[in-house]
Design a protein around this nucleic acid. Sequence first.
RNA 1: CGGGGCGUAGCUCAGCUUGGAUUAGAGCGCGUGGUUUGGGUCCACGAGGUCGCAAGUUCGAAUCUUGUCGCCCCGACCA
Length: 513
Amino acid sequence: MAKNIKPRKEDYAQWYLDVIKAAQLADYSPVRGCMVIRPEGYAIWEAIQRDLDRRFKDTGHVNAYFPLLIPQSFLTKEAQHVEGFAMECAIVTHSKLEKDPTMPGRLRPASPLEEPLIIRPTSETMIGHMYAEWVQSYRDLPILINQWANVMRWEMRTRLFLRTSEFLWQEGHTAHETAQEAQEETLRMLDVYADFAQQLLAIPVIKGIKTDSEKFPGADTTYCIEALMQDGKALQAGTSHNLGQNFSKAFDIKYLGRDNTLQYAYTTSWGVSTRLIGAMIMAHSDDDGLVLPPRAAPIVCAIIPVYKGDQERSVVLGFIDQLVQKLVGTEEFSSAQQRTTGEIKQYFFNPITHQRIVVDTRDTRPGDKQYHWEQRGIPFRIEVGPRDVAAGAALLKRRIDRAKETVPLETFTPEWFKSKLDEVHQQMFEKALAFQIHNTRDASTYEQMKQILEKQGGFVRCWFLPDPDTEARIKAETKATVRCIPLNQPGGEGTCVYSGKPTQTQVLFAQAY
RNA sequence: CGGGGCGUAGCUCAGCUUGGAUUAGAGCGCGUGGUUUGGGUCCACGAGGUCGCAAGUUCGAAUCUUGUCGCCCCGACCA
């Protein structure tokens, strides 16, 4: 039992923070609402970046970078977009500081800017402006660009990873010749996100469409992937927007078409953020701490030696050296000797992802080390003591269920360990999927829906006639919102859970982060 | 911005009601030495604080008064 982590049942919000703290993923910063992402947390972001970036390139996209600062006037060009973001923008108004003659030792802003600049909350406007310059002819289309960047939204209330004032994300921005191409792109990237969430983070998601009241400000249609957390609340894990011609009209992205007439391009944008790390934590972790899905884990295995006295120590460490060589190969084993310093030895298990195996030779007790690596969510631990050396084997422990297994030395190979990791990934995904299915309940009346939301949480699936006023009323009464209109519809017609009117739309309601 | 709470060591907090025997404390963490090592050993020694800040009351303020700044939680807003 971890003594520094509050159990989920007692206080879920505190548990979440305790897990992050124990695993040293992030820390609060001196600036309100901002966080420091520590190396163990940033490594997860790097795993996300590596995997997604490959998927973006596999679908024809390239990376570029646009500036952090945006002229304030840009934001006013698209009416809905202003509405959506004006309230949460940080604004740069001055270009230097000077000594304040009235308050010794203080500085005050000086040299006001002619036009204030906003720190990007998202880059549609800046990128729209540039695309207008780049696009002249249908031959210039499509433009398929992604950028990895930070953005800032001045949120009222923040939570590590889930909602911070500044966050890291990627934003894809594309421009197309036809509405159909833009629609295909929007759905293609939604699929990329859904598959990525499942394959890398082992999180099952529901693909769907946002209702008008939840869609991105300035989009024609917002598609999303929604995930369910262990406390029964939903989390929007990624969005893909079909922006239609809204931004091309606002920013004048025009091209001369095949028919020699001037036309507006069709644009899309899509993004996921460091919030995914929060989703990963809440989807998989337990009362003992973080549980990392193997493909996102910077360290896949921690080896813990157990011994009494110097004699046993050298025997055990010698055996571990043999074991490590079998897992990473002799070449990596010897180059690691020159590379690593300190009492935790590091070996690359996967030279492409740089996922590591570590040997913890610190001078602390084995129990200490067990908790150390357990709380950090490392998928496997291998314990090696005199008993194991005598038997020519090692004790393999799985993080997800603490299952133990004695494994003979000759069994250790890269392929064998890779299959062990895949097995864990699969089990984590299946567990999360079972949870999602178990916590998706049907309601045919509003009363029933309220009961479920109050007593059980999770997704409530029901027939519904989307309408902003109705949704606002339901939110006020139940705190739940339409998470999405799932792409996977049963077809046919039903009775709206709220109005009683006939509708062809089935939706998922839930309380959300 | 509304409603609540809190600022004392790196962290969690005690001390404040009733001002002075506390030379400002405890636990955890940290450092050194020893001991121990199959799920958080034990012991000794040690480092570390202008008690958020400012003014006031008083012979005397962590403690009382006023002001001020900051943070956290609950709501509205939100990837």
